[in-house]
């Protein structure tokens, strides 16, 4: 077979045989109930996220104790945890955690430096996350959430590469 001669293959459609359409299937009521079950996990999330905040603090402390030229691995670890925070908050009604996690991710992947100013950016994001969880700032956090994000964006704008 040459590269420009694609082969079309019709895979066996086993799903069609296994999935029935009927009154016992997934309908709007079932979806609403599923969303409610997730909403009821919010208490669990507030415990889970503490692990992430502890990890972020741990990697931040480790970065502080590491010579500037050798911090790349720790910054990668920080990115990983920020990425988890971003990916989970919104599922449990903490969209502001997703927004802060996203901003920290974008900053960490965009910066080439790992100096004191970059660590300060990490610290203010970590403090902001703690505030959101501590104050139970659900959703977008209202006016306070808006101010918080704007403040973080201003910090990033000062430090991020132009």
């Amino acid at each position: 077979m040459s590269g420009d001669e694609p082969e079309f293959i019709q895979p066996p459609n086993t799903l069609k045989n296994k999935v029935k359409y009927g009154p016992d299937g997934v309908d709007l009521d079932m979806l609403e109930k599923a969303e409610q079950i997730i909403a009821n996990l919010q208490g669990n999330y507030l415990e889970w996220v503490q692990d992430d905040l502890t990890k972020l603090q741990g990697f931040y402390d480790k970065a502080l104790a590491t010579p500037e030229g050798e911090r790349a691995k720790v910054f990668k670890d920080l990115f990983g945890v920020a990425h988890d925070v971003k990916g989970q908050g919104g599922s449990f009604g903490y969209h502001l955690m997703t927004a802060i996690g996203n901003q920290l991710c974008r900053f960490l992947e965009g910066t080439q430096k790992t100096g004191a100013a970059e660590l300060d950016v990490v610290k203010v994001h970590l403090d902001a996350m703690r505030l959101v969880i501590g104050q139970r700032m659900e959703g977008d956090g209202g006016k306070m959430g808006e101010n918080l994000l704007r403040g973080l964006q201003a910090v990033v704008a000062k430090v991020a590469p132009k």
């Binding site: 799903l15 999935v19 029935k20 359409y21 009927g22 299937g25 997934v26 309908d27 079932m30």
Partner: peptide, 10 residues
């Protein structure tokens, strides 16, 4: 209302 049943899917 009706919908797809996911009961037999792995």
């Amino acid at each position: 209302m009706a919908g797809y049943s996911l009961e037999r899917l792995n």
